[in-house]
Design a protein around this nucleic acid. Sequence first.
DNA 1: TGTACTGTAATAAAGTCAATTACAGAATGA
DNA 2: TCATTCTGTAATTGACTTTATTACAGTACA
Lengths: 136, 136
Amino acid sequence: MNNGRFPISLHILTLMASSAGELLSSDYIAGSININPVLVRKEISNLRNFGLIESKEGKNGGSTLAKPADKIRLSEVYHAVQQASLLGNSKNKPNPDCPIGKQINLHLDHLYEDIEGALLHRLEKMSLADFLRQFQ
Amino acid sequence: MNNGRFPISLHILTLMASSAGELLSSDYIAGSININPVLVRKEISNLRNFGLIESKEGKNGGSTLAKPADKIRLSEVYHAVQQASLLGNSKNKPNPDCPIGKQINLHLDHLYEDIEGALLHRLEKMSLADFLRQFQ
DNA sequence: TGTACTGTAATAAAGTCAATTACAGAATGA
DNA sequence: TCATTCTGTAATTGACTTTATTACAGTACA
């Protein structure tokens, strides 16, 4: 997974955390990230499905955090954008007649689970507020 | 980084570890992974550059481990295939006029380094021999 | 009721990754 | 010596994925 969505989602959430209470438009956010507003709205839609963001339609509408920044763990952000596995999906279909090939996906999966656990542990320790606090 | 190269490289190395001493041809390896032999040779070339594999050209040639499987850490494999960052490269060029945008790549990089450190710690604890030992 | 937003679908453009083709060079052994 | 069987590598194609763009309906506001 080279997931370009994680940095985008984190950027969106950081902007909202830094101007808590205000409604930010997708155009404004897109201007900060320097990407297309429609992609921002898609990511917001996804983050909203995970309960991290609330939106208001219509004039003077926009989006804001659904809960305080110190209640949002970066692991939640990871879960929201994560679909593929971390070190690369073995979409490969190894040769079932090879004693190594027929077993390797099982053992790769175990390895990935182990590693992803370590990663989530780190992300769980940091809240969005912690992340924002690093900015001056 | 959805790096499909990590599983491929690990598959190659596992095959070599399981038949230590023998020279394996790229065709044979490609048959086990079920991918193109040229891609195998590319990965072997890369692993060779990192001192993990030795190759012999010409008829009856092939490749084998450059050192015992218990002397190869999975972190070395990771380093060999790793190019992009873990949670997705911010190829984005955020708006330098935005107080968040102009700093976020720096803080993302720090976060990635932290997480990658945790990941490497796990991979360092497991050798290729440990990985192979799981196979029956 | 016009304006400024969101939400979403559909399409196009760009980028990435793997397969394939091609071929030179190296080692073997008949 | 020379055909064979490998590696090494470049170049091209094709498949797939991601992002940008266009388009437009729906919503809220003033």
